[in-house]
């Protein structure tokens, strides 16, 4: 029998729940050289800010058990380049839903970026990153406090009618009031989670490995942490969730969905294996068969 892998996210029908995560899939067209973008559930584009940014100095990458740290620092060409050039260019080569991932350093910057994304036909869904841990002045603060998370969501909601997802930070003591604040302000969904703040030291040189000292931890080791956040927020909110953190297999996708995710983002796995997403999508039907799942949507939040 044909296994139904499709899911509905913010009113958009996805062929399958597998979405490459922002910052781990370039601007989409890089991977067109080795995989069919139309096979992906959707694509989350690299995080974008109002102004173009060079990002942090290098080294920006450090290895650790079960993953890596990154301190890319939101390198991007700015929202105008995204909506006028990049997104239309990706749209020309695929019909997969595109997610703009937006960061900002003030409530207003989030708002202006969302207005610009709203006017861009190539973008299907807006994801607000209030959790990027790399940038000294911003990001972090919004995601760690319910009132600031609410303020950003309110402003973004005013700015766009497109489905609006807020991507939350795991670097908090209690995520539930933050998730609820976003839901109350009209978010259509939440993405859980961004990277955990970490650090490595080169003990021979007696210096941090990353030029930025600290960076965001991601990769397979993050999976149980992300799963716990998804399960916890699923119990507290009604809006759909995108589970993100350490996903590397079709089994992980199903586990995330059982915990309450409607779709799943795959991040670091793309860095280790640029064919990770198509491999996961390929094995979904057989894993569904093994687990007696006819329709993937049926398992969302069954735990």
């Amino acid at each position: 029998m044909v296994r139904d892998t499709s899911v509905t996210l913010g009113g958009i029908r996805l062929k399958n729940p597998v979405i490459p995560a922002s910052g781990t899939f370039g601007f989409g067209f890089e991977a067109a050289g080795w995989l069919d973008l139309d096979r992906l559930g959707a694509i989350a584009l690299k995080g974008t800010t109002l102004e173009p940014r060079f990002g942090n100095p290098t080294p920006r990458i450090a290895e650790c058990a079960g993953g890596l740290l990154n301190a890319v620092g939101l390198q991007n060409p700015g929202i105008d380049a995204l909506v006028n050039e990049v997104a239309p260019q990706v749209r020309r080569i695929c019909s997969t839903p595109l997610i703009a991932n937006i960061s900002g350093f003030s409530v207003d910057e989030f708002g202006v970026c969302c207005e610009k994304a709203d006017n861009c036909d190539s973008i299907d869904l807006v994801e607000i990153n209030i959790s990027c841990p790399n940038v000294h002045q911003g990001g972090m603060a919004f995601g760690t406090d319910p009132a600031s998370a609410a303020a950003v969501t309110r402003r973004a909601r005013k700015a766009t009618r497109k489905p609006l997802f807020i991507k939350l930070s795991p670097n908090v003591t209690d995520i539930v009031p933050i998730a609820r604040a976003c839901e109350d302000e009209g978010a259509d969904g939440l993405t859980l989670i961004n990277t955990l703040l970490g650090m490595r030291i080169d003990i021979r040189r007696r210096k941090p490995v990353l030029a930025n000292r600290t960076g965001g931890f991601s990769g397979p080791a993050l999976f149980p942490v992300a799963l716990r956040f998804v399960s916890q927020v699923a119990a507290a909110c009604r809006i759909p969730l995108i589970g993100c953190g350490g996903v590397t297999s079709a089994e992980d996708v199903i586990e995330m969905m059982m915990a309450g995710a409607t779709a799943v983002q795959v991040g670091s796995a793309n860095l280790h294996d640029p064919l990770a997403c198509p491999a996961i999508i390929d094995s979904l039907p057989s894993v569904m068969e093994e687990l007696n799942i006819d329709k993937l949507e049926d398992i969302i939040g069954i735990i």
Partner: peptide, 9 residues
């Protein structure tokens, strides 16, 4: 492979 922007100059 150009995906992560970790190696920028």
């Amino acid at each position: 492979t150009g995906l992560c922007f970790g190696c920028t100059v």
